[in-house]
């Protein structure tokens, strides 16, 4: 029973989190976190060589958490594999029982630790979603029949804060047409900005059964807020920055703000994707303050 997929199809407020595979083959710390989060989230994203750094693979870790009864969302980037490897890995994931796949372009190698690496991008996200859709229907991109067809719940990302917004809407539409049924977003700090975005994408998403889970990040300290503000495209309202800076206990304030954001999103969003960035142990408290009961 894939609760995550069920909510994507039938509705219901979804809660997802994400974990980063380690550099090395020892996944024990990650698995401990996954086990701890199990009662609180519908699924956990497993990142694919995040920030273009070399890590334990998303497919292997997705399978490991699946064995523990945690529903994985396997992230898959277009950065490192050509169309042969991408399709083969989709089949492999399916053979291992992985159903939820989130498709992304992937951070460029120049932003990671292998700047000299060949940026592959043989397929882009729209094309990879199309390929996955074809596999579901029983053929590959080359039109050859498959023996056994995979079943996927396909997702993609959209960036509600990126400009120009027309391009984000265009990509959202293309990804929906290519078969994406759920979307996760970069972290939202300003709920009214997200509401504006939803208004703009409604003509595209309105008639379709797609769910968008906005990202929410735990602002764990004033230092972290400062770091985030230095990243391109991150917009944190001044009032939020002030609250963290003035708080006697910045982490507690960050948890409170995160919970408030989730509460406000609850009325308008299909769910939330919580990015606790190494502080996953606080997710149950965030959800408790947001009034979301564990499963």
């Amino acid at each position: 029973m894939n609760i995550f997929r069920d909510k994507i199809i039938n509705g219901g407020f979804s809660v997802t989190a994400e974990l980063f595979p380690p550099k090395g083959n020892d996944a024990s710390a990650l698995l401990k976190k996954a086990d701890f989060l199990k009662p609180f989230v519908d699924a956990i994203n497993v990142t694919d060589n995040q920030r273009a750094s070399m890590r334990l693979g998303s497919m292997a870790v997705s399978r490991l958490i699946k064995e523990m009864g945690v529903e994985p969302i396997m992230q898959m980037t277009c950065r490192d594999r050509n169309r042969i490897a991408l399709q083969s890995d989709l089949l492999s994931a399916s053979a291992l029982g992985i159903e939820n796949v989130l498709i992304l372009s992937g951070d460029h190698p120049l932003n990671g630790e292998y700047k000299d690496a060949k940026p592959v991008y043989d397929l882009d996200t729209v094309q990879l979603l199309t390929a996955a859709g074809m596999l579901i229907k029983g053929t590959d991109l080359a039109g050859k029949n498959l023996s056994g067809t995979p079943s996927f719940c396909l997702g993609a990302v959209v960036n509600p804060t990126a400009n120009p917004v027309e391009l984000q809407i265009m990509m959202l539409e293309k990804k929906i047409n290519a078969g994406a049924v759920f979307f996760q977003t970069q972290p939202i700090f300003d709920v009214s900005q997200y509401e504006d975005f939803l208004g703009k994408v409604r003509p595209v998403t309105g008639a379709q059964k797609v769910r968008i889970l906005p990202g929410v990040a735990l602002l764990k300290s004033a230092k972290f807020v400062k770091f985030l503000l230095g990243l391109p495209g991150v917009n944190i309202p001044q009032a939020t920055v002030d609250r963290i800076e003035r708080a006697p206990d910045q982490l507690a304030e960050g948890i409170k703000i995160c919970a408030e954001t989730i509460s406000r999103l609850r009325g308008i969003a299909d769910g939330v994707h919580i990015m606790a960035i190494g502080m996953e142990e606080h997710i149950p408290e965030i959800l408790r303050q947001a009034g979301i009961k564990s499963k």
Binding site: P119, D124, V158
Partner: peptide, 11 residues
């Protein structure tokens, strides 16, 4: 930078 032909990435 990624030679994407269907539109931009999220970055």
């Amino acid at each position: 930078a990624k030679s994407l032909i269907n539109g931009p990435c999220g970055g």
